[in-house]
Design a protein around this nucleic acid. Structure first.
Lengths: 337, 337
DNA sequence: AAGATTAATGCAAACGGTTGCATTATAATT
DNA sequence: AATTATAATGCAACCGTTTGCATTAATCTT
């Protein structure tokens, strides 16, 4: 910067003001300084700027148990894409925050925040707060949650209405004339899963469809879970006519089992699922699934974070639309896709 | 830091030395200072440290045309996961570098590097250099390429041997008795695609299998491209018995067309593809595909970057193993998966 | 016990910018 | 033309660390 200042015959302050587009600098000097900057191939040191003005132009993104995630959830990538789209419009970059070695989830937050590495955070925490949210609240850190948090309902967040989505999916099956509708769930400790369970029950109740305790069973989000849980359902109920599955991957397992059991999908048993991955689209038959629009989720979360920066007040909790993508697995007339 | 220093009755330098674990500090004071740090809930300002010692403990990751990528390539996420695994072991974080608004790909590099935001970069550039690589070389920036670059063969990189992979896949089909082997490619401007074409040709030649100009056709990496290119192949050659497809998504399109044409896979026509996504695994029939191990690609790239930091010399170019995952689409005996 | 080593700590100048306030140049007013 | 208002620039302190060198404390020699 000094070099630029010297060559342009001005002070460093002036150069600084040109960089930050200060209105008080005359057009003449601005042009001159910009020319010199160009000539010298000068770019300001971002780190030094950050130190001086306590701003990093960076947002941190924290993913849930990113390291452990054995099966790689496409949600991550889509949300990240949405986030990055908005961030880049605001000239911000994205720091992927990862636990260093043995570091706990709370410690990593403290390190990043107290270390002043980011201006704000986007996090995804489907479960209960482990102390991280508390820490962020106490320290007035701008942050947005993708998903929900049981302990606090006053934190800025974007989420799907998972309960309603599940309700709609159940209602769809009911309207197609099904009345032994079972549900294969994933890990039960997530809020998402609990909401889906609720929505399912509510729909059954609203439409006066019988519910039996063992209509609802669950296990991990794996294909094989889908497979063997379907086995169990089939042995428990010889006349079930619909299965809702918590994830497309699981639904493939279910589908496999149904085919082995000589059950026709959708004729004998209809299948519907969540997350609308490629797998649902390209399965045979293709599977009706809930599109949760992860890109939009990321986009809106990031937008919300900038709203917080700019102190625009908005709804604390934003609900993102989902869509039911109807496919062959719930359509009796052939050829629908 | 000053507060810590005062409370501990030492100077700021001493606190700093405790943080960086300087051997000259006595155990007694070290323990004392650490206790105070704990009590005050002190974490050092990362930005200030970076400014002072010109190190960010951050690596930048640049993805190819990340913004434009309409269909979201799972490669990104897997590579990122591999990178993050290694980075966190070294107490590094990851900056996702995105083009700000109208910013060009070269400009974003300049901004990040001259702005001293990262200690090194990992990039993925399947095409020719747009000036970015040149810039990085000229400025002695530590960086590793995932993929290859035509103009320079002396830059640190990790890559698959795409040529050999394609050779092997072709040879597999030949060994299964096929001798009208066609190839449906993706975008031709990528080095990856060119290498695959070469490998395919080399295998045909080695095994004395005839090649016809129009055995090889290509278009975008889309399902519908796979569909209509297969149509074309079928109309051009009524006795083709194998198709190699550049990507699983395209192969689904191909599969659909073959089924419509009443062709049995694998009996009439065998199908083999690249990238081994979930789609290949769960297609019906399941599709033989090349697993390129993207996580490992990311991991090794990151490892290589740290080797450069530590000035360990290594092979400049590292080749990552691929695997052929054989599935139903190339297996005449039933039941193989 | 005095001098010589060695270990532990402190001082102060960086690192490369930003910014409140003072100052100077320019324009407006009478 | 002198006075005042306003626009443009410079000065210098500051952001929170690190680190070379100087200094002081502790230990070792003989």
């Amino acid at each position: 910067m000094k070099d630029v200042a010297k060559l342009a015959g001005v002070s460093a302050s002036t150069v600084s003001r040109v960089i930050s587009n200060d209105s008080r600098i005359s057009n003449k000097t601005k042009k001159k300084v910009l020319k010199i900057m160009e000539e010298l191939n000068y770019y300001p040191n971002t780190i030094a700027r950050s130190l001086a003005n306590n701003k990093t132009d960076t947002i941190g993104v924290i993913m849930p148990s990113y390291k452990e995630d054995i099966f790689i959830n496409p949600f991550f990538q889509k949300a990240l894409k949405g986030i990055s789209l908005i961030a880049s419009q605001h000239f911000f970059d994205i720091l992927i925050v990862t636990n260093h070695k043995e570091e706990s989830d709370v410690d990593v937050l403290k390190r990043i925040i107290k270390g002043k590495r980011v201006d704000g955070l986007i996090l995804t925490r489907p479960k209960e707060d482990d102390g991280g949210i508390k820490f962020l609240k106490e320290n007035n850190v701008p942050f947005v949650l993708i998903g929900s948090c049981l302990e606090y309902d006053d934190i800025p967040s974007v989420d799907n209405d998972n309960e309603q989505a599940s309700y709609d999916l159940t209602a769809l099956l009911i309207k197609k004339g099904r009345n032994k509708i079972t549900f294969i769930g994933g890990e039960l400790d997530s809020v998402v899963m609990k909401d889906r369970y609720k929505g399912y029950l509510r729909a059954l109740k609203d439409y006066n469809i019988p519910f039996d305790e063992d209509y609802f069973i669950s296990d991990k989000f794996l294909e094989k879970s889908g497979y063997y849980l379907t086995s169990r359902l089939m042995s428990l109920h010889n006349n079930l006519d619909a299965i809702i599955v918590a994830d497309d991957l699981m639904s493939l397992g279910a589908l496999k089992r149904l085919k082995e059991g000589e059950k026709q999908v959708p004729e004998d048993i209809m299948l519907a699922s969540f997350n609308n991955s490629m797998l649902a689209k390209y399965a045979n038959p293709s599977i009706t699934s809930i599109e949760i629009n992860s890109i939009e989720l990321g986009r809106r979360a990031c937008q919300k974070l900038f709203d917080i920066f700019e102190e625009k007040s908005r709804e604390n909790k934003e609900i993102i639309d989902y869509k039911i993508i109807e496919r062959e697995s719930t359509s009796l007339k052939k050829g629908v896709n």
